[in-house]
């Protein structure tokens, strides 16, 4: 995405009041308490263990730490995680 393209998109998003994830291809994270996590728009699993999950994003990566993490279901762009979630971090 070129710089001009990005600017244009941001302008359009601000003007038309569009959600950012649609415009910029960002992940959308839905969290239910500390037990369920639903992540849309990921780009694959980088690392998975029972206390840590790292997901690739279109830009950067998302790190989830917790206890007893289980991938309930996984599709190419969505993932549904269960377990005790303690920490979510996004790295550029």
């Amino acid at each position: 995405m070129g710089r001009f393209n990005r600017k244009l998109r941001k302008m359009a998003a601000d003007l038309l009041d569009l959600p950012q994830d649609v415009v910029f291809d960002l992940p959308r994270v839905t969290m239910i308490g500390d037990r369920q996590l639903y992540i849309e728009n990921h780009r694959g699993v980088l690392h998975f263990s029972s206390d840590k999950l790292r997901l690739a994003l279109s830009k950067g990566e998302l790190e989830v730490t917790g206890d007893g993490l289980v991938i309930r279901t996984i599709w190419t762009e969505e993932v549904f995680i269960e377990g005790q979630i303690k920490h979510i971090a996004v790295h550029e």
């Binding site: 998975f48 263990s49 029972s50 007893g68 993490l69 289980v70 991938i71 309930r72 279901t73 996984i74 599709w75």
Partner: peptide, 11 residues
């Protein structure tokens, strides 16, 4: 399609 993915302590 994979589901109920979990890690055991043995990796």
């Amino acid at each position: 399609q994979l589901w109920s993915i979990s890690r055991t302590s043995g990796g």
